[in-house]
Design a protein around this nucleic acid. Structure first.
Lengths: 198, 198
DNA sequence: ACCTGAACACCGTTCAAGT
DNA sequence: ACCTGAACACCGTTCAAGT
């Protein structure tokens, strides 16, 4: 065998990523294996290494797609005159995303996957862009702060919202209930903004 | 060979945990291997399975010790009349701990280690106890809230502090600088408390 | 009873060999 | 040039066999 040319390299790349995502969604990250992906797309393991450097590379690409998906969701935000309401909405969208794409979202913050994965620039840019979406709303909130202060405040609150999502997800998501988590997120957002405004 | 009885089971258990911690500190979690631990303590792999069910069990024990260590640090807090100051102090201790025991701290929130690790009760108790330390200070802050509201507020803020530590650690710890991270943590704490108090 | 170490199943990764 | 699949190194885990 060999030399089939049924799919272009680019097509195989997408097939691999799609198959990998499905596996992660269904079985969690620990269920992701090269051989399983190969079977799924009808190729052998060697072919996967034609289009990806290694597993670390493949994982990074998946994380990139997850960030793109999240960005798209955040951009679905409906316009509101009150920037505080928009920040609350962003937080709500984030929480919903974390729940709907739980296994993929979880992967974004797993760093034991590889020892010293130095984050590539294109990936960091995607992360920064998401922070930028929140920052934009913070600018509308109070014009009397410097850009640096606004940036720090938006980072503080957004990291905080993320922290609630993460800690809630590990162990007690079901016990507290997702409704209660949304309340907790809103509590953080509202009180922080109340303290920060003016 | 076999049958040495140079150490009791309990001694071997501690030797394994100590060796494992040293490896994690020096090389990160991804450097932790059964065979490496065995060599380090002068036994063979089989002996490790005499005192631990498996790697998941061993990891849980290490995480437990890390939580104990953290609790000890948080209890070093110096008494202050202003509960807000004490909460700030707790946040500062947490950030310091995350930095000083980076690899061990990071492990606490890695869930890809095993597929579905159901958290044991004794472990969840340790986590709850840490939340309890913060909650106690929140009670002093405002007596006009219900216990449920106090609990939710302390969870919201503490999760938020944790979120800043986590997101800062992934990628940009050096760029922003630890000094700046402490500032960001304090910004979150102060503004949240300002918004919540009364 | 305590401990060994060979064996097993299962990984990611490589690369000579086919078409 | 594209793809295969056997081979390699390296995991965690088990367990019959020694003392």
């Amino acid at each position: 065998m060999a030399r089939r040319s049924e799919h272009s390299q680019e097509e195989i790349k997408k097939m691999v990523l799609n198959a990998a995502e499905t596996i992660i969604i269904d079985e969690g990250f620990s269920g992701l294996k090269v051989r399983k992906i190969a079977i799924e797309i009808g190729y052998t393991v060697g072919s996967i290494y034609m289009v990806f450097d290694n597993m670390a590379d493949l994982i990074m690409q998946i994380k990139g797609r997850t960030l793109d998906n999240l960005t798209e969701q955040l951009n679905q935000i409906s316009i509101n005159d009150d920037p505080a309401k928009m920040i609350e909405q962003l937080a709500s969208i984030y929480l919903t995303f974390a729940n709907q794409h739980f296994n993929l979202w979880r992967m974004l913050f797993d760093f034991s996957l590889i020892g010293d994965d130095t984050v590539p620039d294109w990936y960091q840019d995607k992360v920064d862009h998401i922070f930028g979406i929140v920052e934009l709303q913070f600018k509308q909130l109070s014009a009397s702060y410097t850009d640096e202060q606004t940036k720090q405040a938006s980072r503080a609150l957004w990291s905080g919202v993320h922290g609630i999502c993460i800690l809630s997800s590990s162990g007690k998501m079901d016990l507290l209930g997702i409704k209660s988590i949304e309340e907790t997120v809103m509590l953080l957002v509202k009180n922080f903004i109340k303290g920060w405004k003016l």
